[in-house]
């Protein structure tokens, strides 16, 4: 692997490090097949499903007995944000065996649109949690605790989506880097 140009190199001791650029083998394995793991975010219906899921969650929490609007919106928020965080930022690699593990080091957000930033899909996926948060603060009378919980949940999915966090790893969240 020849690099050094693109910012921080990974070192076992550092808390923050950046995934180094791919080797020739990795690049050719990545190009061997289309990335079915991330391609679907641009597919038909992949955008509609987000509002549908959110609405479903809201209804589910609303029908529970003794539910207040604050708790119901907070639960909806947290459920959606957790799911989104796990899917886009926590799990790495591809669940199928079609490119010899060439994406094992990247999470799904970094795989989407081949790593390009500000693509339509990424813009949509970043806007959805923000809109959800604004809606929830609008329809409820959060006290400070609720507001902070919801806001932190939002930040957890917004910050890793920002271009600066591309291929960036924080040791507390992703473990010590493999050294090779």
């Amino acid at each position: 692997m020849s690099s050094g140009k693109s910012g921080r190199r990974r070192r076992s001791s550092s808390i923050i490090y950046q995934e180094p650029p791919e080797s020739v083998e990795q690049i050719s394995d990545q190009a061997a097949n289309p990335n079915l793991n991330s391609q679907w975010v641009n597919a038909k219906g992949a955008w509609t499903i987000h509002p549908v899921i959110i609405l479903g969650l809201k209804i589910l929490f609303d029908v529970m007995p003794g539910m207040t609007q604050e708790i119901s919106w907070t639960l909806t928020n947290i459920t959606y944000m957790t799911g989104s965080y796990l899917m886009f930022h926590w799990v790495r690699g591809v669940p199928f065996e079609f490119n010899a593990g060439a994406y094992d080091h990247l999470n799904m957000w970094e795989q989407i649109d081949n790593g390009d930033q500000y693509t339509p899909a990424k813009k949509f996926l970043l806007t959805v949690p923000i809109v959800l948060f604004l809606l929830s603060t609008h329809y409820t009378h959060y006290d400070l605790t609720y507001f902070i919980i919801n806001f932190l949940a939002l930040m957890a999915v917004v910050i890793p989506k920002l271009p600066f966090a591309h291929r960036m790893r924080f040791a507390p969240f992703s473990g010590a880097p493999p050294d090779d």
Binding site: S6, N114, G115, Q117, Y118, T127, I130, V131, L134, F151
Partner: peptide, 26 residues
């Protein structure tokens, strides 16, 4: 304060939506 936070979020979202697409591949 809450309104300011929300306003900032809206401004941030609009900025993100208006940004130009670019590739991160070297």
């Amino acid at each position: 304060i809450r309104s300011v936070v929300e306003l900032l979020l809206v401004i941030f979202a609009i900025r993100y939506l208006l940004a130009r697409e670019y590739s991160t591949k070297p």
